[in-house]
Design a protein around this nucleic acid. Structure first.
Lengths: 257, 257
DNA sequence: CGACATTAGCTTACGGCGTACGGAGTTGTA
DNA sequence: TACAACTCCGTACGCCGTAAGCTAATGTCG
């Protein structure tokens, strides 16, 4: 299921997200000199350890205990820096969008949007756990904001009523396609069978269980039999292919319509 | 995070999904007469109880114990009928798509697609937990298949290379918009503040933490200030508005292009 | 009709999770 | 030097999914 973000104390979460940009907050969590032991960790170290765990073992295996262990301490040690796991996930999400490239200066909007989408696709495939964090919440952090800002810069001048729809649609398309791609990839990796083998087994099973499948679902049957373009059964290139086609349709309507 | 589906023993899962259509499988789980006590539950009763729990309390609160309690038994009693929670979620997902309307006979494709999307949007808003179940897995069950089939019937005749892209894009658009809508709705309900109040508080917080926001993100600032059309701050109508716009763009490219 | 094999229902228990609580130890300040 | 503030973290609680195995019910067969 989807992890919800943006909950918990909003002020605390926002302060953590914008801590690098805030004049009030220093990098350290607490005022420069206060009693008590030195802090042994930093929020950034925790975020990076958590991302490393999620990248390596997946979101299901991300636990406070696992992050603590990677840092050589316990789960509870993290709670000095981060209010809860949910806030940590929000921080991970924003951090994984860091270093977003500037929108190009060139006037070729179509190419610029395609490059933007390609970049986002790359992030998702590199950090598939991003797709398990809800993105429907409002943009909260500086790096997420930069992703949106770069798209808005590309689309600058589009009529406002088209703009909101186009922005939503572009995010949804890329995210949905990336989700199809990464889950297909994961399923293939988990079962150990090839993609083609997986489909033939599934088809045989279905033929047993629903002999009337072709009559009941003629169009689906036709689609399954139709040529799927390049890429064969590889779920990643199939999803990428569908994304490219969807983007073309959308941009035809947006830029040329 | 997103619940993955389609795992576990595929044959067992598929048999459960297609049990009503299969000639081999009767409605009962076991052969007609066998020793042992009568079965006190049915798979359907379990699925419906689970859906009721998810509808009422959300996916986070869906547990085998909760479903068992609703049925007046224990969590472990369910395992006679359902191999694991994951399979139960798959069954819930398919069941929630039951009763899908036939594609209309009329030739107005645009209207038919919009009606299809509207219907899907309704399902998602009625059962928001659907959006927390991964949809990137292959279509497995008869009811999910019917949803796809009805869209394919509407789009019959579209060139194959456009068809796959269009189908993916339509699903992604509706699902993404519905996710934005339901999560915004849930956030408002959880905090108890009005949508407008929520935004002003968030803006004030941001102004404190990132005073240079307007300089760093000029386009985002402009978008936030632009008129948002009808619906004001209500996240559901905002998301619906964006969906309608996205569909129009996509269908312009698909049907008129 | 009685013995038995089979099976459903359920209790108990295990290892995991997020995190509340509170004690121990460290440190700047008065 | 005493104190107060603070970090760190061990322990524990209440959840979760579900493995294992017992109990009791039931159809079949001698």
């Amino acid at each position: 299921m989807t992890l919800y973000g943006g909950q918990g104390d909003p002020a605390r979460t926002m302060a953590l997200l914008w801590r690098a940009h805030s004049p009030a907050a220093t990098q350290a969590t607490r005022p420069r000199s206060a009693p008590g032991p030195k802090q042994g960790l930093t929020v950034d170290a925790i975020i990076e350890a958590a991302i490393a765990v999620a990248d390596a073992d997946g979101m299901d295996r991300l636990s406070m205990r696992a992050v603590g262990e990677r840092l050589g301490t316990s789960a509870m040690a993290l709670y000095t820096y981060v209010p809860s796991k949910r806030e940590l996930v929000d921080l991970m999400y924003d951090h994984a969008h860091a270093g977003w490239p500037q929108a190009p200066e060139t006037g070729d909007r179509r190419a610029a949007v395609l490059a933007w989408a390609d970049h986002l696709w790359d992030r998702y495939l590199r950090h598939p756990w991003l797709l398990q964090v809800s993105y429907a919440r409002p943009v909260l952090g500086p790096n997420e904001q930069a992703v949106l800002e770069s798209l808005l810069a590309i689309l600058d001048g589009t009529s406002p009523q088209h703009l909101r729809a186009a922005v939503s649609a572009l995010f949804h398309l890329v995210r949905g396609a990336a989700q199809t791609a990464t889950e297909g990839r994961a399923a293939a990796g988990a079962t150990g069978t090839s993609d083609e083998q997986w489909w033939t087994e599934r088809s045989a099973l279905l033929a047993d269980l629903a002999p009337d499948f072709a009559q009941r679902f003629p169009h689906s049957t036709g689609l399954a039999g139709a040529p799927s373009g390049t890429g064969g059964y590889d779920p990643v290139s199939q999803a990428r292919h569908a994304l490219d086609g969807g983007l073309r349709l959308l941009l035809d309507g947006l830029l040329d319509g």
